[in-house]
Write a protein that binds this DNA or RNA. Structure first.
Lengths: 347, 347
DNA sequence: TTGTATGCGTTATCAT
DNA sequence: ATGATAACGCATACAA
């Protein structure tokens, strides 16, 4: 007895012997207008029996709200195929969105299409608001969006803008990670970034590395710096490049666990041991970090919490509430495991 | 000079000195109606200057197409926080969707809400079609959807249904993985599934394990079987449980790389070596598999290819084309690396 | 307490 | 070659 044709509110109204208005009032739980309990019951039961579900497009058209939030990344598809950070963000976002009756549209935008792609997505009103993860310095469209009044929250930061954002302190956490290495006696410390320095997070993490060196009176040596590209393959390649450069180093700070996993494989391939021959510190504390061999010392980025914070800010904005704290920075402690030998020290 | 108010086709029409119809005709490249080159140029340039983007809701309402496809998983949020398979699916799906001008809505549905959640998503016409990854046996709503005429493609299989699907042969690949272990001389082989046997893939993989044992004349011992739950934590826990059972075994087949990573950590924690003390075979060949220590022998599931195939089938269905091959099975070879010692053998 | 009428922005069917 | 007009399904101000 399943209906083939679409069921509209008119059908429900007819079957219940009321008007479309009443149906709408009942189903949307409008508080102002009072509906007799009998009518309400009837409408609800008829609607259920008919399997009525409001048409999203019609509702969006009249209400101006699509009930969808967008998560967008400035990346290429192959960057996300193994993105352990993304899944955590999705986890956090989805829970909150569901609780608010919102759906999640996921999209990636290739760096060169930034401008048009944003505008299409937002101006088409496909989505009510947007969470953008991993902003780049060259993101021209971002401020335009903000000015357009589109609810927008950044996961990450864009210096000089007033956009809502939630992030960790990339600079100081990186510095702390490298300081840890320095404390353990390393003075030749290589660095592989998480991504191109066009990404603000990558630039900050690299700066933190440089600062730690400087604070310790250690020279910054370009020979020891490589740029990762989000995924394990890039870590593997850049680590090889480090070995091939013949520069000597006893530790590597990799500003992304994902990239660090590739680097680690390249180290083992050389028959070198971690941490005995080379100490390794990552960044992110992906779920896998603690299960790696050896368990990875890394900066614990509270990804799910970040996602929750971002969605909460976005949802508040959507509700027209004022977000007082426009730039949230969450704690990201260094989690010491066994990839840099700290656990072996006897103090 | 950016417009604050929404720009509608009426605005474009006014500014270009034509009617809304003409604007629509031009911007949608309607072939039938001929538009003078001058008019076309003018409309296009005016539209661009004004930053006009058609309203998705209005378009969806009248056309009946939301231009969005849905990817849905029957899972809980914490299941996806480290889902390496999911990101690959997203990768493959997104590329195809973009090429067809489609957006991607991502959603997870908790097992107990299956029915209502599907119906809401689809009947609301939020999405034009749905790709469902990882079906369960208890998925009552699925056939209803199919009967409703909703374009639907399964990543995985649901026995006894006629739904379009793309999958690998879970049964035979699992069997092959276990046969590999048997060939290497193992006779006490434990198994940790990827998930609850309510998921069809989990049931099939377990059956493949059992079959390999049977073919080799080996007993199926319940003591050696555990059920994973998609993530690494479950693998870690079930591996511990295996050790605690005091049953002896020299190899483990884990029907998911994700779960295998947890199992591996539990093995190392016992100061046991892989493959010398315990051989390990995974399933999926996530990008990380080759970077693990030791590199993981596993079934190479072509996740991205699966996603592409699924999206291609869905998009064809959306176009009203007949999909001739309704059940596609892709190859998933066993990739032998170093986690079960095959590379050490001298033949 | 409930019904009527209007409009959201677009595409599609007619005319002209 | 282009314009007027009618839906699409819903929510809401207003009427009754």
């Amino acid at each position: 007895m399943v209906n083939r044709k679409r069921v509209t509110s008119q059908d429900v109204a007819d079957a219940a012997g009321v008007s479309r208005t009443t149906v709408s009032l009942v189903l949307n739980n409008v508080l102002d207008a009072q509906i007799s309990e009998g009518t309400r019951q009837k409408v609800v039961s008829v609607a259920r029996k008919l399997g009525y579900v409001p048409d999203a497009a019609a509702r969006a058209l009249v209400s101006g709200r699509a009930q969808i939030i967008g998560l967008v990344l400035i990346r290429r598809p192959y960057h996300i195929a193994s993105d352990g950070f993304l899944t955590q963000i999705l986890d956090g976002l989805l829970e909150d969105a569901h609780r608010s009756g919102l759906r999640l549209l996921f999209d990636i935008i290739e760096p060169e299409h930034q401008k048009e792609a944003y505008l299409n997505l937002v101006r088409s009103k496909h989505i009510d608001g947007i969470i953008l993860s991993g902003p780049r310095f060259d993101d021209e469209a971002l401020d335009a969006l903000e000015k357009d009044g589109i609810p927008l929250v950044l996961i990450g930061q864009l210096p000089g803008s007033n956009i809502c954002s939630v992030d960790i302190d990339n600079f100081n956490t990186s510095r702390q990670a490298v300081e840890h290495l320095i404390c353990l006696g390393h003075s030749r410390i290589a660095c592989i970034t998480n991504a191109s320095p066009a990404y603000t997070a990558a630039a900050d993490r690299l700066a933190g590395y440089a600062q730690a060196l400087k604070d310790a009176g250690l020279p910054y040596d370009e020979e020891l710096v490589r740029f990762g590209d989000f995924n394990m393959g890039s870590g593997y390649k850049q680590m090889q490049s480090l070995f091939e450069s013949a520069a000597n180093f006893s530790a590597v700070f990799v500003a992304s666990d994902e990239v660090a996993i590739g680097a680690k494989a390249a180290i083992f391939e050389r028959k070198l041991n971690i941490p005995q021959d080379i100490a390794l510190v990552g960044f992110d504390d992906l779920p896998i970090a603690r299960y790696l061999e050896p368990p990875l010392t890394t900066i614990s980025v509270p990804a799910i919490k970040i996602a929750r914070q971002a969605s909460s800010m976005l949802i508040n904005t959507l509700r027209g509430e004022e977000v007082k704290e426009r730039r949230v920075i969450l704690e990201a402690p260094l989690t010491i495991r066994q990839s840099c030998g700290a656990h072996l020290r006897q103090n």
